[in-house]
Nucleic acid binder design. Structure first.
Lengths: 339, 339
DNA sequence: TTCTGCTATGACAACGTTGTCAGTGGGGGT
DNA sequence: ACCCCCACTGACAACGTTGTCATAGCAGAA
């Protein structure tokens, strides 16, 4: 592998001069610069990051640790958002996936430290509270989609409260007065937040969500969840005072609600409006009718978190409170005013 | 940050002895070892990978470059598979996503080289041919889900031929004699391969796939695809000699076919059997009836590719031909014998 | 001419680690 | 008693880069 010295030797200059050229130091004559640049190109010289890092004592890499990727595939958009901003700063990303296992997590924090990462992001696939045990790791850390119980770390979260509000308001504005809710797993923090938003929208319309029309669409602990939205929706829709619209905790739940509606011969959106959450394209765009939903802004969250991390690394001021990212309404074909 | 020398000073030994301890060199007395290990723990010493790498001239990091993550979310399982095997070898993964843009790709190859990565994986989100332009990068490269036109690189691919065969055979064995096909995008390599498999299964049953029952379920160039499976399925199912089963190019297509069936009042699987491809859990497990499908073994492919890369890095023998990974049948509720 | 100030360049050390080689000291064999 | 061998330890250099400081050369001012 070509080194600085190789280039210097061939160019008849000192290593330091070559270093100046590749680092764009203006203190080099145009002549020398041109000659060296030609040589760099010819020899295919690429600076050794490890040596650089050792000398300058500062790393351009950032660690990215996630729990389980598998369950909610679209959350990988966080990675895209992170990457986008890291590129802008010329940083590289070291990625690791703990699979939710503590011992792996510790191992990876250690690894990030061994790499002397300038900072790290910790992302979860569900919006939840976590207990970060990164004693080994001393650089700044930003949490994405989760928050630290002891508020020791900066965090970026989806605005689930407003998201729930948005879902309900969209239906209420259309004139729906009897709305059902097949919610996300009650153990998730998102559930309570969204419910508050849904209640607020109802309050503004001088209505109240009927508790008899509320069911969890998913139950069980993380990693052992079970979808029960199909059965829940059947119950809701078989009742005598059927809702004209159903708010769903996520798009898979919406899919099951739609299957239940089909099973009962109800047409969507004519007989029943359905609104989802997450905006998982594989479902929302493929489904007929296409699913109106509220999007989880994973990409935006990744970007926001990375900007925050950049600030922390640079020692700039950052907000004390978790940063909330808006969940936008995506209107498609599954909602319309009741008959 | 604590260094080897700090530990050595506190322990009253030489740096080299500490180095021996952390590298598990047996040539250290038990007494010294115990004392040093205690100190390492106390001071929170973690070896500096950059320095190590510089001294030993060999890197434990591997680069992982992908094109577009977004479109087929489950393909991130490749990452999980890769990670699993990398951990086993104590390697770290540097990840980058080109978004399909050439200039970013070149930038990342350069970055991998700057990090002196021991090797790299290049994964695409669709099974396709690629033109790798990694002149900058001289370590071994393994392609995942794609292959090099000039066969310069090792590759790991899904066995689409057998996958198509599996789909058709499952239906034929159940007694279906009139089978429709709503295929993946014809520009994808998978399409032709699977079709050959489907034809083979028909041949073995002394049947032939009726070309009038074949439609593409998706059209358009990569990045600008359009799902047309819903309309295709309507056509197929409205014809007078309706198929009793439909083979789908992927699970989203199956979702649309199911919507079309519902629209026409056909019940699945009673009136129509449907088999998907990919096994995107968000769809296959949420849908009612749950979708029988053939799984794309992303996780396995990631593992296999990494094992291959490990071999290449170690200079061991590797197969000349692309390695094919089997696509297993996942039986759920959407297929049954025709009435 | 001599001095000042500036541009352009280089010599050298250091970052943290490990490979090489040279000890040191104690136990066992003769 | 002597020597040899072996287990253990340390001094030193080197990996590739850049920060610090020194210096050479030259233009312009005095």
């Amino acid at each position: 592998m070509t080194t600085l010295k190789d280039v210097a030797k061939r160019g008849g200059v000192s290593a330091k001069t070559v270093s100046r050229v590749v680092n764009r130091d203006p203190m080099v004559s145009d002549e020398t610069r041109a000659a060296i640049l030609r040589l760099v190109d010819e020899l295919g010289y690429i600076p050794n990051d490890a040596a650089r890092q050792m000398r300058t004592q500062n790393s351009r890499t950032v660690g990215f640790l996630t729990d389980v990727i598998a369950t909610t595939p679209y959350s990988v958009d966080i990675v895209r958002g992170v990457q986008e901003e890291l590129r802008a700063e010329g940083r590289t990303m070291l990625i690791a996936n703990s699979g939710g296992m503590e011992e792996h997590e510790a191992e990876y924090w250690r690894m990030f430290r061994a790499q002397r990462a300038a900072g790290a992001l910790y992302a979860t696939m569900f919006h939840r509270a976590v207990d970060i045990n990164a004693v080994e790791f001393t650089s700044p850390v930003v949490l994405v989609n989760c928050f630290d119980r002891r508020h020791r770390f900066a965090a970026v979260l989806p605005d689930d409260f407003t998201g729930g509000y948005t879902q309900a308001k969209h239906l209420l504005d259309m004139g729906h007065r009897r709305i059902g809710l097949v919610s996300v797993n009650p153990i998730l923090r998102a559930e309570g937040l969204r419910r508050k938003g849904i209640d607020k929208a109802h309050g503004e319309a001088r209505l109240e969500l009927d508790d008899k029309l509320v069911r969890p669409g998913m139950v069980g602990n993380i990693g052992a969840e079970r979808l029960v939205a199909y059965e829940a929706a059947l119950e809701l829709l078989k009742g005598k005072k059927r809702p004209t619209a159903i708010i769903c905790g996520h798009d898979q739940i919406a899919l099951q609600v739609m299957s239940a509606a089909a099973e009962l011969g109800l047409r969507v959106p004519d007989d029943l409006s359905i609104i989802g959450y997450d905006d998982q394209h594989t479902i929302t765009e493929a489904l007929r009718p296409a699913l109106t939903t509220v999007a989880l802004p994973y990409y935006e969250m990744g970007r926001t978190a990375t900007l925050l991390l950049n600030d922390l690394i640079a020692g700039r001021e950052t907000p004390q409170q978790p940063v909330l990212v808006a969940c936008p309404l995506v209107i498609r074909q599954s909602c319309r005013p009741p008959k």
